[in-house]
Simulated assay, not measured.
Amino acid sequence: MFVVGGESLIDLVQEPLGPDGVIRMSAHQGGSPYNCAIALSKLGNDTGFLCPISKDGFGTYLLAPLQEAGVKSLLPERVFAPSTLAVVTLNAKKEARYEFYRGADRAFTAEGLRAALPDGMKVFQIGGFCPIEPEDAAVWVDVAIHALRKGAILSMDPNVRPSLVSDFDAYKRRLAAFLDLVHVAKLSKEDLVALDASKSIEQHAKELLGRPNCELVVVTLGDEGSVAFTETGTARAGIYSPPMFGDTVGAGDSLMAGILTILDEQGDLKPGRLSRLDQAALEKVLRFGAVVAGLNCARKGCTPPTRSEVDTVPHLPD
């Protein structure tokens, strides 16, 4: 099973201001780990989601896509804390910017999360809000170590959000504790700039690969595609542009799911094998991820494609 740990939330997207001057919001299910879990399941993977879900109406709204996609809720008992909210503004390029009001995604205990981890995990994917708060980070690191001991590959997409952090230096120390555990790290170029703008992407990748477990680093470059690094090779791939464009919400989460999926299918999602991926292998992985992300961008909001939709794209690598 692929297990994804981290937040689910409601995106409240501001609609264009009408002539009456009233702000209207539309509600959409979201959260980077939530999106990734759905994308993994729609790509055909047995997937579990490790996040508390509120008893409120938004919680019911969040559960529906998980159930539709076949994602197993690993914390089935819903909590009284209100659903976490993100207020979303789209810029002229339809790229999303967020402000957060947190609730149910933090209503957990270390004991509860550890107990919910299934046996036989292939992957434990973490990220999003996990390193934001010191007390939360301590719990998620503990759970990640528990997953590692159960034999899981660890992967992380931190989605660095400086606006959520009061002490960014302390946040970077917490994030480093996670990065010391993971085998696969996926970050955006914006993440790397926020962490240290003085370093190049290549320097960041080299430092990540020098951590105790890390064997594969993927960096997304927006409309310039993505680049991947191992000890053995480096590769770059462009984006996949769908025939029609919706927006970029969830593109990175879908790409992450695509990368984990193709690595597993190729038998490479194992310690020692990831580090041996060469340029040709990395290009194949990135192109598959790009197609998954591109098809997500064909619709508004995060709507990851099914595996059958991905397989209809004619120029996927053999």
Rank of each mutant, 00 (worst) to 15 (best):
A177R: 15
L179E: 10
L179P: 01
D180G: 03
K189S: 11
E190T: 14
E190K: 14
D191V: 11
L192S: 04
L195M: 08
L195Q: 03
D196P: 06
A197H: 09
S200R: 11
S200F: 07
E202H: 10
Q203G: 14
Q203N: 13
Q203R: 13
H204A: 11
K206V: 02
L208M: 14
L209F: 04
L209I: 01
P212C: 02
N213A: 06
N213W: 04
C214M: 14
E215S: 04
L216T: 06
V217I: 10
V217E: 02
V218Y: 02
V219R: 01
G222F: 12
E224G: 00
E224I: 00
S226Y: 10
V227I: 14
T230G: 02
G233F: 06
T234Y: 15
T234M: 13
A235S: 03
I239K: 13
S241V: 13
G246A: 10
T248D: 02
V249I: 15
G250S: 11
M256Q: 13
I259A: 04
I259R: 01
L260A: 07
T261D: 12
I262A: 02
D264K: 15
D264Q: 14
L269K: 09
L269H: 04
K270L: 03
G272C: 04
S275L: 09
D278W: 06
Q279G: 11
L282G: 08
L282C: 10
E283F: 00
E283A: 08
V285T: 10
L286W: 13
R287L: 05
F288W: 14
A293D: 08
A293P: 03
C297D: 08
R299E: 10
R299N: 12
R299K: 15
K300T: 11
G301C: 07
G301L: 04
P304V: 04
P305G: 05
T306F: 08
S308D: 15
S308C: 08
E309Y: 09
E309W: 08
V310N: 11
D311R: 07
T312G: 00
H315E: 10
